[in-house]
Design a protein around this nucleic acid. Structure first.
Lengths: 223, 223
DNA sequence: AGGACGCCGATCGCATGCAATCCATGCCTG
DNA sequence: CAGGCATGGATTGCATGCGATCGGCGTCCT
């Protein structure tokens, strides 16, 4: 079986469950745990140094997000990502994040717009500096998160977390060409400008086209 | 504390967890467990006749769906539904179910279209027969579910289950006027026709307007 | 009297044990 | 030799116990 990273004993409340969740999610989405791999509670608990309970709860969370599939008395199996899945995910992201951008344009506070602008600045700097893919991906995530936060919706973050596989996006960003990166930056800027100008239609359209365009790179990443 | 229905010992695998989940979800969404109520694992376990483990997992699922809020060392608190929440939920449903209807128009199989037609027939019959609200709501759900199924998407059902509170919808349908019911039936027919005619634009628009219109009744139901 | 500190109870987080269930393997039978 | 069946092992589902942590309340000090 593929080895999962052994981790140090963590502090804080609910730390074991969250650590198990974070480790598994990272390993699965990064592809280190191949699709089809069986994840056994006891084995994971032993490797992570926890008991079965937190591992079990982490697996249930992952199952709710669709990353693994629970089979009674068999264990949890990593579900495979087909190009169709990625396509579907990105289309839904475009729908939901487009809505988020539109809401942000309508009702973001000055503070939230400021947050978006800072995130965008960091994103541009990380690209100009030729930062490693994981850092660029983090800055990209931060910008998207700032838009969702600026939407003021309580449910959009939940829905997006269900369908957005961060490491999948990271892998896609890692394989961006120079042109892809430039386009990504400029599309982010369009979204930012739209929100600053309270241009709802542009905000929706810019975010939608940004994600629908990124879709192709992401699809290529899994096929 | 509000009493939860004591239930008989259930059969089958994972029965305790699923029963606890079903009971709690029903009680919460129907309003028998008032918003703000604290749900304690030990107390629920005692009332339901299970141990804390399945209750605990049920609560985590409910928290993931946003029905309750977990607070460390305090318990789970029933999250209140404000008119704003209902509005937001219905807008997102309109977005997602509109997408579902569009996809259905594009790629539903003959079998799936047949399913939709049957569900619609049952809905119309239940209304003509003056069936009780809970049955009308069930038929309504069945139609919407048939559209989502016809979309062929694996993720739309998951996303919709996260934001759709069935009993909330049921309560709204219970307070429909005769005109509301007629409108609902006719809008369903528009969706069905659109899918049959492979008219994607109409499918999206009809479903969206159907849900956005129903929104006002639902909002009135919680305020 | 007002505020801060410390103790105590309540509650969750995690560990572990037991029982039920399912799959696979090997044997027996036709 | 093929098919069905019984048995054993592996795995999850659930129960329960213990420790950690947080909130509430009383008390003491200022």
């Amino acid at each position: 079986m593929t080895q999962v990273t052994p981790v140090a004993p963590p502090p804080g409340p609910a730390a074991s469950r969250e650590t198990a969740y974070a480790v598994l999610r990272e390993q699965i989405s990064a592809g280190r745990l191949a699709p089809g791999t069986w994840l056994r509670e006891a084995a994971l608990a032993a490797e992570l140094g926890f008991s079965r309970t937190p591992v079990r709860e982490a697996l249930r969370t992952l199952a709710a997000e669709g990353l693994v599939e629970l089979v009674h008395n068999r264990g949890a199996r990593v579900v495979p990502w087909t190009p169709t899945d990625v396509d579907e995910t990105y289309r839904l992201r475009a729908l939901l994040e487009g809505e988020a951008a539109g809401l942000a344009a309508r009702r973001a506070t000055a503070e939230q717009v400021e947050q978006m602008a800072r995130a965008q600045e960091r994103y541009e700097r990380s690209i100009d500096a030729g930062a490693p893919a994981v850092e660029r991906a983090g800055c990209n995530d931060a910008f998207h998160a700032s838009v969702v936060a600026a939407s003021g919706s309580n449910r959009l973050p939940v829905l997006l977390s269900v369908i957005t596989s961060a490491p999948l996006v990271a892998r896609a960003i890692g394989s961006y060409t120079a042109d892809d990166l430039r386009r990504s930056v400029l599309q982010h800027r369009d979204v930012l400008t739209a929100v600053q100008q309270r241009d709802e239609a542009l905000a929706v359209a810019a975010m939608r086209s940004h994600i629908l365009a990124a879709r192709y790179v992401a699809i290529a990443g899994v096929s």
